[in-house]
Design a binder for these strands. Structure first.
Lengths: 352, 352
DNA sequence: GAGGATTATGTTATCGATACCATCGACGAG
DNA sequence: CTCGTCGATGGTATCGATAACATAATCCTC
């Protein structure tokens, strides 16, 4: 189809419709956009022509003319991890209700690549932009601000958002789960996953996932300090392997170093799964001898599955709210708050 | 930001760049698109102006003028299930390498809504379109064909693709896994999940997920027949609940009806997880008394996790190939084949 | 039934780029 | 020294819609 030799495709234009309906193009435009402003008889004629010709409006031309693209760009680090998928899904949904469309880019966890993607996204003149990272290059920030469109950062709650933010506090979530483990009687609590040491010289080498995991770990450490539970029990986490593998490997290392550990908080449910499976391999009873808590409430964590105690995150709602905020801002409404904390929930199941 | 009263945002235009660089707009355009055709000195001046002014080209105007959008639309049923996320990720990746962008829409498993989305997607004049469903309304097919752009259907391999297709055969996968279960000594094999009966009057009420699950089940049934293993063991699957819950519930029902079942093939890994957990609850040894096989090779299925025997699907590769095919077709290359079968792999682990 | 208000429709300019063709200058060959 | 060629650059039309303004048709009221 459409090989090099074939003539360029000719779309039906608004002119064609106007001609067959015996009206001017602007009337066709009105029938499509503000039908109530056109007499019923004319409207019917135009609509018939639209149907007969199979007219599909050219939104590209429309956007250029109206200076409104009905497009929202979302830049996520990756879709693979299933972390952001539901957020993007929620976003797409809420945009669709308002007849807007979603332009998606994946940054692959690099702020440099994010910057490039922001530029290409802005070249489409979107009406808004959603970012899953709270960290941007200075140039990226400048472009975002300069674009003059609403910007929503999701998942993290940056201290100084570019514009608006929707998410929850990873730090508080880590703290809350650690306190929960203490509340159910644990005293020697370890942390597994998300503990790669920050690269020398700052955050350059650290990925977003690492950063978020680190925030949870900091919440964990804070809770330990508050509760007087001693020093954090964290083993350095060599890179490589899936999250599940890291969970298994790191739990082994942790138990090697602190054999009396009676609970572990894992930086994600995937990590927790690896930890659970390592515990089973070693014949360690969960939760009797070792409590295990995860993070994320992934599909497999539920009662019919792992029965994993975990932290539930409103991923879908974050996307939906981001869309709503964006559209409201586009309409000129002042947001009630620039930062929307959707919170999290401790889900108590069988493992802790 | 950008509230109703603020003046409409003024972007830097190519004219502005041209003026400050002391050249005409077309020269600016050439510097951006075909730099080698511009003298080095001029090029430098223009590039300096671009940088100084923070010029971001307007791709909307560019698309209108060049009749090429550098946009590919992808319509997926949902991103939430983690099924298509990696495919979209692969697609986004391969498009980005060719400097194209991705327009994403979610059809929510309805062909009617798919049709509407196709129309809005086409209004952006994309250079290609990717669909995760192999089933479309007649009007949708007509629009796709009429658009004159390459179309790739992914995941399923329709018998009569609109244009091109990339995926694997659900039927063959179901058949292969069933034969594997037989090969490892099982004789009384059941099927769990994906067995909601087709709605009366055809496929109207059935979702895509159901359809794919049904194809796997048909492959399962075919294998049983070939191997002389008796009638299919399938219980009707009441709707409702997550896949994991359905796996648990349906395994219970299946064992009730056929207590001597010695293996179950589950329509997805999530279903298998539910089945595994139900088996454990009942004290049924896996795989000794009951072998369990899944489908999809989700993250949690791996050796450090469930150790689930399953069928691995090249989800990411499907997306990447779809992108490659689309771009090749856009360049006018004839595809070697309209249907690309990327196959699947039986992953043997601990449960079967 | 005339005048003003209101509704329905049309005309023209414009959005910001690229396509197409024209022009200009430098350089080498004869 | 002149002509032809080629590389570099520019002018103008155009893509397909909408905005802004203008006008024609209809309505209502006194």
């Amino acid at each position: 189809m459409n090989d090099a030799s074939s003539p360029p495709h000719r779309w039906v234009t608004m002119q064609d419709v106007a001609r067959t309906a015996g009206v001017s193009t602007i009337t066709v435009s009105r029938v499509l956009r503000t039908p109530e402003k056109v007499r019923a008889a004319t409207r019917d004629r135009v609509q018939a022509a639209v149907r007969d010709l199979g007219y599909v409006p050219d939104q590209v031309a429309g956007s250029l003319s109206s200076r409104e693209s009905r497009l929202v760009a979302a830049l996520v680090s990756t879709l693979s991890g299933s972390i952001f998928a539901s957020t993007v899904d929620g976003l797409a949904r809420s945009l669709r209700e308002a007849d807007h469309q979603l332009l998606l880019g994946t940054t692959e966890y690099s702020t440099a690549s994010e910057q490039a993607l922001i530029a290409t996204a802005l070249s489409r003149r979107p009406d808004g932009i959603v970012l899953t990272s709270g960290e941007h290059t200075p140039a990226a920030r400048a472009m975002l601000v300069g674009a003059g469109i609403p910007v929503v950062e999701v998942w993290e709650l940056p201290e100084d958002p570019v514009d608006m933010a929707v998410g929850f506090s990873n730090f508080e979530a880590g703290r809350a789960m650690t306190r929960h483990l203490h509340a159910v009687g644990r005293q020697r609590i370890g942390f597994v996953g998300g503990s790669r040491p920050a690269a020398a010289g700052g955050d350059e080498g650290a990925t977003e996932g690492d950063r978020r995991g680190r925030l949870r770990r900091q919440g964990y450490a804070a809770a330990l300090a508050e509760l007087g539970l001693g020093e954090p029990r964290v083993v350095p986490d060599p890179a490589g392997g899936s999250m599940v593998e890291r969970g298994a490997r790191d739990l082994a290392a942790l138990l090697e170093r602190w054999p009396d550990t009676d609970a572990v908080f894992c930086s994600s449910d995937s990590v927790a799964l690896g930890a659970l499976s390592e515990a089973r391999r070693r014949g360690i009873a969960v939760p009797d001898r070792l409590a295990v808590a995860g993070f994320g409430d992934f599909e497999f964590a539920g009662d019919s599955g792992l029965g994993l105690t975990t932290v539930s995150i409103p991923g879908h709602a974050i996307g939906a709210e981001a869309g709503r905020l964006l559209l409201a801002a586009k309409r000129g409404e002042k947001p009630t708050a620039r930062i929307l904390d959707l919170g999290f929930a401790i889900i108590r199941r069988a493992t802790a």
